[in-house]
Design a protein around this nucleic acid. Sequence first.
DNA 1: CTGTATCCTAGCTGATACTG
DNA 2: CAGTATCAGCTAGGATACAG
Lengths: 127, 127
Amino acid sequence: MRKDTSTNALNEKQIRDSCGMAYSLNIIGGRWKPAILCRLSYGLMRYSELKKSIEGISERMLVAQLKELEKDKVIERLVYPEVPPRVEYKLTALGLTMKPMLAAMSDWGNLHRQQVNAVDEQTKVVY
Amino acid sequence: MRKDTSTNALNEKQIRDSCGMAYSLNIIGGRWKPAILCRLSYGLMRYSELKKSIEGISERMLVAQLKELEKDKVIERLVYPEVPPRVEYKLTALGLTMKPMLAAMSDWGNLHRQQVNAVDEQTKVVY
DNA sequence: CTGTATCCTAGCTGATACTG
DNA sequence: CAGTATCAGCTAGGATACAG
């Protein structure tokens, strides 16, 4: 394995890392999945709770994202055959393994957001 | 702070977490930024090296993503007024603080990808 | 070598209405 | 309550040619 040219040379590990990251993004990326996963990381919630808590999401998108997450086996759908119907969503065992990653992402985001606010806008804090 | 109803109740921390995560995704999300950040996390690279190492990316997208990352202050653009021109990209101090998050994401992705391969396809391993 | 400029497509996303 | 169905718009992304 040659040390190669002047600057940074590609190696297999970097390629794999990039693939892994892209793979994670495929699952947790997009506009709504972070919000869903974050909420479910605190415990199970039912459909209507998710819908109410995630401001601006349409039913169409909520259902679509939940389905994808279910397909990827990170969340689980629990249907109770009652009237009125009740459906709950929760992280699977695999989903729970994402918590460190999710935590790292929200931590960095919150920290950086604060810094940006502090530098650029001084007082503007939006939650 | 009431304990609220039957299942999981929203609280301020969850909202913030979700925002932080979405904020991170705004910066590192998309199809190409993970690949770029992963490579630069190992050290500086010049434009042509990035282009060559990231298979399938067009010049248009590479430039666009690099510009966004620069605007977000996570990478830095170093221009050497030479002939032929040379431009290098590297993580900023802020960009370096992302490394734990990036590592968490690539680790989880690689691990989960292996599991999926192991369960669903036995032998198929694509890098 | 390091980009711009132009045009084009596909799929994500939103709004709304409807159903078991 | 927990979804489906349909239509339409936007924008991220891709192909190609050109420029400093």
